[in-house]
Measured scan of single mutants.
Amino acid sequence: QVALSRTQVCGILREELFQGDAFHQSDTHIFIIMGASGDLAKKKIYPTIWWLFRDGLLPENTFIVGYARSRLTVADIRKQSEPFFKATPEEKLKLEDFFARNSYVAGQYDDAASYQRLNSHMNALHLGSQANRLFYLALPPTVYEAVTKNIHESCMSQIGWNRIIVEKPFGRDLQSSDRLSNHISSLFREDQIYRIDHYLGKEMVQNLMVLRFANRIFGPIWNRDNIACVILTFKEPFGTEGRGGYFDEFGIIRDVMQNHLLQMLCLVAMEKPASTNSDDVRDEKVKVLKCISEVQANNVVLGQYVGNPDGEGEATKGYLDDPTVPRGSTTATFAAVVLYVENERWDGVPFILRCGKALNERKAEVRLQFHDVAGDIFHQQCKRNELVIRVQPNEAVYTKMMTKKPGMFFNPEESELDLTYGNRYKNVKLPDAYERLILDVFCGSQMHFVRSDELREAWRIFTPLLHQIELEKPKPIPYIYGSRGPTEADELMKRVGFQYEGTYKWVNPHKL
């Protein structure tokens, strides 16, 4: 086992960053958080920038500027975001240094004079007029057009580079997404736009490419001749908990499936790229999406959770019991969808996408189930092999396979070949997804960000279904809070070829 401390991990990262040409360590950078008073800024962006600063992973002359409508001070920003920093008493001095680099400007999102004030403020910072500028839009999409237009007109660096990070949702359907994309691309070049999907920053999602293309053993079996089906799962054990009003506007397909799960599907299904260059990788992902037809209604199961009468606390409440959810809402909190990649490698292999709230566990994984062994000599005792990439929690890679049961006879039983990170790298604290992705933006690497043509294809696949749901308002199937979801989803999976045995229990190697 390799035991690495946080300091050692960050030392390795620093070495990698400083050796590259793309990370300008000594240049002045300004990180501007648009929507600095909001939840995302408070819980994710400010803490992430602090962790990067604490670990010495930001360029040395980096300033952080918050911008929002609320009249706040840096002290206010500190008060609301610091509880999420997880700072230790030993880091007190470092924390003071961090907040000394912070400033805040209040202004409207659609007022040109406010942006001119913001620009004057940035120019007044040390070497601010020639600094590289990175704008993070932690804002609702309704203000994107006004904000990007004003940034472009008043706040661009004339000497350094300018980059803009856009948070999902990128529209509600193909038409609104196209409108937003066309607007942003009329102001910024594609190499300046970073559409963030934080799932692409997760260690195991990034590991998929290495697993596939750096190991000879997987190449020959990664196709329709050997793989019976692919299941991509995202499960949350909690409901909307008072935030249903926002969720109800989008629903589970827009929230998770059309982005996170579809991105994971691309990494499983794509061909080997010409290189690890950002556009070479994204070219292959677009090719996969172009091979997927629009979702067919007979390959869809929609569910909505109801309270568990035997549960406790939140578990007793259904989705419609959330006071922020519109009365009688038919918005799905669970969806199972089957897609097919219609190309030579994957023809006929079902890709089953499942996601839901208020389920029995927290889990995100990719599961490849292989065909049955031909010419069975073990009297149907063999179960199908599976390769599982567990994204969260407890990152893991393992192969479910058959071995001989101890004893006199040739009785096979299920076991696993474990390729888990935790076994080799004991207690290594890896940077989280937002840390990686923000560092990628500083480096100018777009590999783990969504390109406009990729986004367009993703919406093309799901828009007809979303429009049909909005028009017909089908009643989702009720499922109990804390269950596996509607049984109809299991029946759909069985119908397209997935075999669920229920006889195997994964042993978490992190707890051995």
Rank of each mutant, 00 (worst) to 15 (best):
C382N: 11
A269G: 08
C382V: 15
G303S: 01
V301R: 04
E457H: 07
D310L: 10
N298H: 11
V450F: 14
V281S: 03
E416M: 10
V391E: 15
N308Y: 12
H260A: 15
E435N: 15
D322V: 08
S483Q: 04
E294G: 14
F370R: 00
V441W: 01
K272Y: 05
E488D: 09
L387E: 01
V507E: 14
K357E: 05
Y500H: 12
Y425M: 13
Q381E: 14
V507Y: 11
L492P: 00
E386K: 03
R362A: 09
Y425Q: 15
W346E: 02
M401P: 03
I469D: 07
H379L: 09
A297T: 13
K494W: 11
G311R: 11
Q392A: 09
I377T: 07
F378C: 03
N427D: 15
L359G: 01
L368Y: 02
F378H: 01
V450Y: 15
D321Y: 08
E312G: 05
K473A: 05
M401D: 04
R451V: 01
K287D: 08
F378Y: 05
L471A: 06
P431E: 13
I469S: 07
M401R: 03
E414P: 11
P326K: 11
T331L: 02
Y479D: 02
R460S: 03
E413S: 11
F449Q: 01
H510Y: 11
N411A: 07
E294D: 11
Y481V: 10
Q468R: 12
S452D: 08
N277A: 13
G348C: 02
Q380I: 06
C266W: 01
H510T: 09
T503C: 12
R456E: 12
S415P: 05
E271I: 00
Q258E: 06
E472D: 09
I389L: 14
G407H: 04
Y319C: 00
Y398V: 15
R362T: 11
P431Q: 08
M270N: 03
K363H: 14
D376N: 14
M408S: 14
K505A: 15
V450D: 00
R436Q: 15
C291H: 07
Q381V: 07
E488M: 08
H379D: 15
D283E: 12
M447A: 13
K505H: 10
R484K: 13
N360D: 14
L439V: 04
L339I: 10
T330A: 06
G318R: 03
K290V: 02
T420R: 08
E386N: 07
G407N: 05
E472N: 12
E365N: 03
R424D: 06
L455T: 04
L439K: 05
K400I: 07
C291R: 12
Q392L: 14
N343D: 04
E361D: 12
E435K: 03
G303Y: 00
K404Q: 15
D376W: 10
L419C: 12
L465R: 02
C355T: 08
I480H: 11
V349F: 01
M264I: 11
C355R: 04
S275Q: 05
Q499E: 11
L419N: 03
P509S: 10
G444L: 00
G303W: 01
A489G: 04
D376K: 13
H467C: 08
E472G: 15
R390C: 14
E454S: 12
V373D: 15
E491S: 08
M493C: 13
T333D: 01
E284F: 03
V281T: 14
E342C: 07
V286A: 14
R495C: 07
K400V: 12
L368W: 01
V268K: 02
D490N: 12
V288T: 06
Y305Q: 01
L419D: 06
R451F: 02
F370Y: 10
S452E: 04
G348H: 08
Q392W: 09
A374P: 09
M264Y: 14
V507W: 12
Y425K: 14
E386Q: 08
T276W: 15
G375A: 13
Q380W: 07
P486N: 00
N411P: 15
Q258V: 15
A336D: 03
D279C: 08
P431M: 14
P464M: 08
N308R: 15
V338L: 07
K475N: 10
R424H: 13
Y305I: 01
E344L: 08
P350V: 00
K494Q: 13
P406M: 15
Q296S: 04
E312P: 15
N427Y: 14
P431N: 14
Y481M: 07
P476F: 02
N343M: 03
F410A: 06
R367V: 13
E312D: 07
A358G: 06
V325Y: 03
M447V: 04
H448Q: 11
A358M: 01
K511S: 07
I477L: 11
W506F: 13
S329N: 03
